[in-house]
Structures are given as structure tokens and as C-alpha cells.
């Protein structure tokens, strides 16, 4: 095949992009979940298996767990850092989320699949507890490359009705893990914003050092995902969530 000098880099970029296996576009309901117009929506994730039905089934189960988590989650535990002149060291964390797992089975009875997104590495389902029809625009795909990073990635929205929090995750081998980690990180951030106990002991003699400890004990209720974003360059995943005040 005779490739022109311009064609070679294009093909090269295409090969690199395809080799990552990550989708270059997502349905709008996935990226802008709060704009679908239906209340109480939730997204479930799964790896994509050869059998598409299995992928959807796994994603549905994950969506039901996420639904219960969004309705009510208790976040508790703590984390500590040791700050020195050469940097901060992590002393560990026992922050954990607990939710009523007994409510997952009943949720599976009444949640319905509104739409499904299938790519080589990830399957996502949009679930709703009520009758919900989303427009074809919301079902259409939106590309990520070349798009401007949304402003909420660096500056959180502020309004009188909701508390907002941002979650971030780096790229894991399985894409669903990245999205789930970003959601978990957002819940932790929201809990920290609502109530945290900060204790520290600083010592300054010949050298400075400090131990900083944070404890959390917070109930989160009726959380919803507002938007999602993946930075194609750095491979960082962002999820914006909110909770009514």
C-alpha cells in the first residue's frame, strides 16, 4: 500500500487510538445523565463479554447495587498522612461505604433498562425505577476527542438546591473499574465536604513534620450522577455527583 506522507501519521494515530480499546464516543445520557429529563436514573457498568446478554445482565446487577448506594450510603472511617519536609506519606485509610444489601434484590424487581451502550471493553445500561423515555438526541453518541473539557472538571457548580462533588480516577485496565472508582471518589469527597473531623499535630524543631488525621461519619442520601467525562489525553475519568440540600 502506498501511503502519502500525510497518511502515515493519521494511520499511526488511528492504530494507537484503536489499540487502547476505549470508546471514542459515548451516548449523551452517559455523559450528561442529569439532562435526560427522568428522575432517579442510574447507570450500571460491566466489562463487555462475547455474549452481549451476559454483559447487559452483569451491568444490570451492578446498576441495581449502584441504585441502592445512591439512595442511601453510610461513609465512615479515617485516613492519615505524615507530612515532612521531603513530602507527605500516606499512613493508611479505613474509609468504607456501607449500604443495605438486602434492598438490592427488590430493586432488581422494579428497575427497568432504558437504554444500553455496548463497546469493545465496556457495557453500560441506563436504569430507571419508573416509566422513562429518553429522546433520540440523548441516545445519540457524543465524541470526546477535540471537545473542550467541561468547566465542572476544574470548578464545581454552585447552587442553592444541591451539594456537588467531583470524583476522579486514573485509567484502570478495565474501563468499568475507572468509572466506578471515580463515582466512589466523588461520594467520599461529598462526605468529606459535609462533615469531617480534622486533627493534626505539627512539630517544628530543626525539621518540620506533621501528622494529619481525618475522620468521616456521614450518611449520604438521594445522590445522583450529573455528568461524566474522560480526558482522552491523560486518560483521567471524572464524575460529577450531587445531593439535594
Amino acid at each position: 500500500m502506498n501511503l502519502s506522507s500525510r497518511g502515515i501519521p493519521v494511520v499511526f494515530v488511528l492504530i494507537i487510538t484503536m489499540s487502547t480499546g476505549l470508546p471514542r464516543s459515548y451516548p449523551r445520557w452517559f455523559l450528561q445523565q442529569s439532562k435526560t429529563g427522568c428522575p432517579d436514573l442510574v447507570v450500571g457498568y460491566s466489562r463487555s463479554f462475547k455474549n452481549r446478554d451476559s454483559s447487559v445482565d452483569y451491568a444490570f446487577r451492578n446498576g441495581c447495587v449502584n441504585y441502592i448506594r445512591q439512595k442511601h450510603t453510610f461513609i465512615s472511617g479515617g485516613q492519615a498522612f505524615w507530612d515532612t519536609e521531603i513530602g507527605a506519606f500516606w499512613l493508611g485509610s479505613d474509609i468504607e461505604e456501607t449500604f443495605d444489601t438486602a434492598r438490592v434484590e427488590p430493586a432488581m424487581e422494579h428497575l427497568k433498562v432504558v437504554d444500553t451502550f455496548y463497546s469493545d471493553h465496556m457495557t453500560a445500561v441506563l436504569l430507571s425505577p419508573s416509566e422513562c423515555r429518553i429522546s433520540s438526541t440523548m441516545k445519540s453518541r457524543q465524541g470526546l476527542s477535540g471537545k473542550k473539557t467541561p468547566s465542572w472538571v476544574s470548578r464545581l457548580p454552585k447552587d442553592g438546591r444541591y451539594e456537588y462533588a467531583l470524583g476522579v480516577a486514573q485509567s484502570y485496565y478495565y474501563e468499568p473499574s475507572s468509572w466506578l472508582e471515580a463515582e466512589r471518589s466523588a461520594r467520599k469527597s461529598l462526605a468529606g465536604a459535609l462533615f469531617s473531623i480534622v486533627r493534626s499535630l505539627e512539630k517544628q524543631a530543626e525539621q518540620y513534620s506533621a501528622v494529619v488525621d481525618e475522620s468521616l461519619s456521614v450518611h449520604l442520601a438521594n445522590i445522583e450522577v450529573v455528568e461524566r467525562w474522560r480526558e482522552t489525553g491523560s486518560g483521567i475519568y471524572y464524575v460529577l455527583i450531587r445531593m439535594p440540600r
Binding site: S154, E163, L166, G192, A193, V198, L201, E202, Q204, E206
Partner: peptide, 20 residues
């Protein structure tokens, strides 16, 4: 020589991340 110790203990309610 100077040695300083500072102990902090505070409960923060509503400390929100605005920019990152």
C-alpha cells in the same frame, strides 16, 4: 533552638471543594 508544637482539632461541616 526553637521547638514548636501545634495541636489542631476541628470538626468541619460544609468544607467544599470549589476548584481543583
Amino acid at each position: 533552638t526553637e521547638a514548636t508544637k501545634a495541636v489542631t482539632s476541628a470538626q468541619l461541616i460544609g468544607s467544599k471543594v470549589r476548584k481543583q
